[in-house]
Computed example of a mutant assay.
Amino acid sequence: MSRIEPPSTDPVNSKPARAATGDGLDPGGRRRARRYDPDRKTRILDAALDVLAEHGAAGTTHRRIAASAGVPLGSITYHFATLIDLRAQAFARYVEQQSAVFEELLEVVRTREEFVEILVDLVHGGPARYRSAVLGFELHLAALRSPDLRVLTQAWTRDSRAALARFTGPDVAARLDALLKGMIMNVLLATDPEPREATRAAIVQTLGPADGSRP
């Protein structure tokens, strides 16, 4: 899986965020020595994903991310030029993580039945899958309004279909990918979600008859 680079932000429409006044200064007004914290940027990105999952893109702020990461507000503006830049890098990290998780799930598949069950579990996942699905749809919604983010949604779709195609071929993989996204959204939004048996039947129908050349 190739590394996914976050989209570049538009310097015209993305104004740099103003650093918090006084952050990093001692009582005498002198700048404190910066504490060595090599994982701080990664921690900020993970915190940004937590905030995006809980509050959505519209409710994501520098202060909420700093509080979630346990870092000074000035650390956010030190590592990221704008909130848009931070959001793009956080979404890029999310796509990389999800693509890797999906590939890892499919590595254990040996039979058609195992393949189907993994996909059913993907649709009817627990709390961890719920957070992941919410972030996925937050990314797609943000990409509708910010075309620069579409490089991430396209990369994610490409990686997902490539992973599925090892078991189905490219044409069926494209249809199956679209089906899975729709069913995951249905499970998230429905007050009475489809049972696992209905999900399994839809996946099997999309796969078509087994030809013996693939699991």
Score class of each variant (00 low, 15 high):
2 S>V: 15
2 S>M: 05
2 S>W: 12
2 S>K: 03
4 I>A: 06
8 S>P: 07
9 T>W: 05
17 A>V: 11
18 R>D: 15
20 A>Y: 13
20 A>C: 14
21 T>P: 11
24 G>M: 07
24 G>L: 10
24 G>E: 14
25 L>N: 08
25 L>V: 09
26 D>R: 11
27 P>L: 10
28 G>N: 04
31 R>S: 10
31 R>H: 04
34 R>A: 07
36 Y>R: 15
36 Y>N: 04
37 D>N: 08
42 T>E: 06
42 T>V: 02
44 I>K: 00
45 L>G: 03
45 L>H: 00
47 A>N: 12
51 V>F: 09
51 V>P: 08
54 E>C: 06
56 G>M: 08
56 G>T: 11
56 G>S: 13
57 A>C: 07
60 T>Y: 11
63 R>E: 09
64 R>K: 13
66 A>E: 10
66 A>W: 13
70 G>K: 05
70 G>E: 06
71 V>N: 06
73 L>T: 08
74 G>E: 09
77 T>V: 10
78 Y>G: 03
79 H>E: 13
80 F>C: 02
80 F>V: 14
83 L>N: 14
85 D>S: 08
88 A>H: 13
89 Q>E: 15
90 A>C: 11
91 F>M: 01
92 A>M: 04
92 A>P: 03
94 Y>R: 12
94 Y>P: 04
94 Y>G: 03
94 Y>F: 13
96 E>M: 06
96 E>Y: 00
98 Q>R: 14
99 S>W: 00
99 S>G: 14
101 V>D: 15
101 V>N: 15
102 F>L: 14
104 E>N: 13
105 L>P: 02
109 V>I: 06
109 V>H: 05
110 R>N: 02
112 R>N: 09
113 E>Y: 01
113 E>T: 10
114 E>P: 00
115 F>Q: 09
116 V>C: 10
117 E>I: 06
118 I>N: 09
118 I>Y: 02
120 V>S: 11
120 V>R: 15
122 L>I: 07
123 V>R: 02
123 V>Y: 02
127 P>H: 14
129 R>V: 09
132 S>D: 12
133 A>V: 07
135 L>G: 01
135 L>Y: 05
136 G>H: 01
137 F>R: 01
138 E>W: 02
139 L>H: 01
139 L>G: 00
141 L>T: 12
144 L>W: 03
144 L>S: 03
148 D>R: 07
150 R>Q: 08
150 R>S: 10
156 W>E: 00
156 W>R: 00
161 R>Q: 09
162 A>N: 04
162 A>K: 10
167 F>V: 12
167 F>G: 12
169 G>L: 12
170 P>S: 05
171 D>A: 10
172 V>R: 15
173 A>F: 00
174 A>F: 05
177 D>Q: 13
180 L>W: 07
180 L>N: 07
182 G>N: 14
182 G>Q: 09
183 M>H: 12
183 M>T: 05
185 M>C: 03
185 M>L: 15
187 V>W: 05
188 L>K: 12
189 L>S: 09
192 D>H: 12
194 E>L: 11
195 P>N: 14
195 P>R: 07
197 E>Y: 09
198 A>H: 03
198 A>F: 08
198 A>S: 13
199 T>K: 03
199 T>Y: 08
201 A>C: 03
202 A>P: 01
203 I>M: 12
203 I>T: 07
205 Q>H: 13
208 G>D: 13
209 P>D: 10
210 A>K: 14
210 A>R: 15
211 D>G: 07
212 G>K: 14
213 S>E: 15
